[in-house]
């Protein structure tokens, strides 16, 4: 039998295939932004988060908020694989009657904690949950995955100050630092660097990691808080479009569908039977 890290790497590859099929069949979606966070979600959902399909309403469950809601297909693939809802729903993505749309809806999808899509909303919402946990003396944790471009939103920094002020050490943000936004590189539009220093200056304890190394992500996420009485931040260095060579680090693919030839190349690289 193979060891756990390899199994999780295999799981990540399986999720990548699922993402690609879902978006191509569903007729549209954010492929590269979704591929970018695969290992982060695998690390969290398979090794870290204390939540199961049976505990989605348990007040003591860990919370996961995908603030970059446009990468929702990754979350859908993971939740379906873990049995939060039936896998057959993945085949309906983006279609009439489906519970799964281009941004996640917490009223429709079991296991989804927040209806995100507009950027800069996940962190204040997560900070509110973390604050409620403190008020009620509950020891669950709140994880928020944000995009790097999302850090251009002012509400992110309002919440950053708030979380530090209230010592929300039960809150952990993971930034998907792939250095690209819809139109181009962040550094060519409005740079967020030095990203780690910014968050440190706002009172957060910051660590950096390879965002595609599941073991490293798990090690960090199970060693929280990084410092008592401070919110934690993991800057996950990632590759937008990871796993599809011609999409990697190419801004043009942010919201674009591959043509027939491109589809064949991508399927080959991801190990999908092209049918």
């Amino acid at each position: 039998m193979r060891d756990r890290p390899n199994l999780l790497n295999d799981k990540a590859e399986e999720i990548r295939r699922s993402i690609f099929k879902m978006i191509c069949d569903g007729g549209g979606g954010h492929i590269p932004a979704s591929l970018s966070i695969v290992e982060i979600l695998v690390a969290l959902y398979y090794e870290v988060l204390n939540v199961t399909p049976a505990t989605i309403c348990d007040p003591g469950r860990d919370r996961f908020i995908l603030s970059k809601g446009h990468a929702c297909v990754t979350l859908y693939a993971v939740l379906a694989d873990l049995g939060f809802f039936d896998k057959s729903a993945l085949d309906t993505f983006g279609r009439r009657g489906s519970i799964l749309g281009g941004h996640p809806d917490m009223l429709k999808i079991p296991g989804v904690e927040a209806s995100t899509g507009a950027l800069g909303h996940g962190l204040p919402f997560g900070a509110g949950i973390a604050m409620a946990a403190k008020m009620d003396n509950r020891d669950f944790k709140v994880f928020v995955v944000m995009g790097d471009g999302e850090c251009q939103e002012g509400s992110v920094w309002e919440a950053a100050m708030f979380a530090a002020q209230h010592r929300l050490d039960n809150l952990c943000v993971i930034i998907d630092y792939n250095r690209l936004q819809a139109m181009d590189e962040l550094d060519k539009i409005v740079s967020v660097s030095p990203l780690a220093d910014k968050w440190r200056a706002f009172g957060w304890q910051v660590k950096e990691a390879d965002g595609h190394n599941i073991k490293k992500l798990v090690d960090l996420c199970t060693a929280l808080p990084f410092q008592p009485k401070k919110p934690s931040m993991i800057i996950a260095n990632t590759i937008k479009g990871k796993g599809v060579s011609f999409m990697e680090n190419e801004p043009i693919w942010h919201y674009r569908m591959p043509n027939g030839q491109e589809m064949r190349v991508a399927c080959n690289e991801l190990g999908i039977d092209p049918k």
Partner: peptide, 25 residues
């Protein structure tokens, strides 16, 4: 413990309020 002043940050106040409400507050 039940009075929170958010400072001059209305958007954050509402986002946090929604998070608090999701936990029954």
């Amino acid at each position: 413990g039940r009075f929170i002043n958010f400072g001059i940050a209305e958007a954050n106040m509402i986002g946090v309020a929604a998070g608090l409400a999701s936990c029954g507050k």
